[in-house]
Amino acid sequence: MKLKELPLSWWTARKLTRLTKDDLRNANAPRLPLIISLTSIPSRLGIIHLTIRSLLIQSYAAEKIILWLHESLRDQLPRSLSDLEGDEFEIRYVNLTCSHRKLIHSLELHPEKIIVTCDDDLMYDSTWLQRLYQSHSRYPKDIIAHECRLITFIAPGKPAAYREWKTELCTDISAPWLMPIGYGGVLYPPHCLYGDVQNRDLFLRLTPKADDLWFKAMSYLGGTNTRRSADPGKKPIPIIASQKDSLKKTNVRQDGNYQQWLALCEHYEF
């Protein structure tokens, strides 16, 4: 987290923490026909309640928010998280250890639903979900993301280094190699991903630490467009002390994303 982000992060966290259960119930918010799905890790159990609180007070609410955790965490939840469970928010436990669980289990549980994924170390502004859904309403068959990068290649089947995949600045734009970036939020319409999406042997071998790359490959193979939303808004606010454990070091700084995308290219002959 950058030093300049600290005051806003502290103030937003304080505001969210002060919300009562009645505030979080958000009974007057219109309901959208979708599920918000995310996952987390042990080091963030003490702070993820801030993410969940920000999702519960959206201007347009989800039918359900599901947090997928590893089975080993069943008896380790802090009250700040467990007290939020109710009709709008539930926690489910699985044995899968990788970040792909933020989506694949919800796809199995709700195959006919729109699924929206997000990250567990951020606080989302109250119009975040509404803005995603507005673009979905115009392009109901597209995957919608607030943040994207454009995958580039130096030769057929040979991707450029991840740092050369430029952040897409244009809005309301679609391209074959536009990749949704998970932290901004991604909306997946039903049946938009290739049949291999649930193949655990494959994604654990090809993209063990890069669920964004796996889901991009599955959408490309499934013939589904990715579109940056028409109104991405401001970036979500990082939570203080949320980056003690992160995939950024291996995937970005050590170019693990390149190695995993190359593995996908070779396997599927992109």
Rank of each mutant, 00 (worst) to 15 (best):
L109Q: 13
E147R: 14
L103M: 10
F153D: 11
I143L: 11
M123R: 03
S126I: 15
L169G: 10
E147C: 01
T167R: 12
S106T: 10
T127D: 12
W165I: 09
K113C: 07
P140L: 09
G157I: 13
W165M: 10
D120P: 05
R163D: 14
H146F: 00
W128G: 01
L107H: 08
Y139C: 06
M123Q: 06
I114W: 01
R138C: 00
R131V: 00
I115Y: 01
F153S: 13
K158E: 15
P111S: 09
W128S: 02
T117M: 07
W128P: 01
L169V: 02
L109I: 00
C170D: 09
E108A: 12
R163F: 13
H110I: 02
E164Y: 14
H146G: 01
L122Q: 06
R149T: 07
P111A: 06
K166A: 13
Q134N: 08
T152P: 11
E164I: 00
H105L: 06
P159F: 10
S135N: 05
D142T: 01
S137A: 06
L129G: 02
Q130K: 13
R131Q: 05
R163S: 14
Y133K: 01
Q134A: 10
S135T: 14
D125S: 11
E168I: 08
G157Q: 13
P156F: 10
I154Y: 12
H110M: 09
K102I: 08
D119E: 10
D121Y: 04
E164S: 14
E168Y: 00
K113N: 10
H105D: 07
R163H: 15
L103T: 03
I151H: 06
I143R: 05
I143S: 04
I115F: 04
C170E: 07
S106A: 15
K158Y: 15
T152H: 13
E112Q: 14
D125W: 04
E112T: 13
F153I: 13
E108G: 04
H136E: 05
D119R: 11
D119I: 04
S126Q: 14
R131Y: 00
S137Q: 14
Q134M: 04
D119K: 06
I144F: 02
I154A: 15
M123D: 02
I143P: 04
E164K: 15
L132H: 02
L107R: 12
D119N: 11
R138A: 06
K141F: 06
S135C: 03
K166G: 05
S106Y: 05
I104C: 09
D142C: 03
S106P: 03
P156T: 14
L169A: 00
D142Q: 01
S137P: 00
I154N: 14
K102Y: 05
V116W: 07
L129W: 08
T167K: 11
L122G: 02
I151M: 13
C148H: 02
S106M: 08
E147S: 02
W128H: 07
I151A: 13
A161V: 15
I143F: 06
D121A: 05
E112N: 15
S137R: 12
L122P: 01
Q130M: 10
P156H: 14
A145Y: 00
I151T: 10
T127A: 03
Y139R: 02
S126R: 14
R163W: 12
M123N: 04
K102T: 07
G157S: 13
E108R: 12
I115G: 01
E168Q: 12
E108C: 09
Y162P: 06
D120E: 12
P111K: 09
L150E: 13
H136F: 11
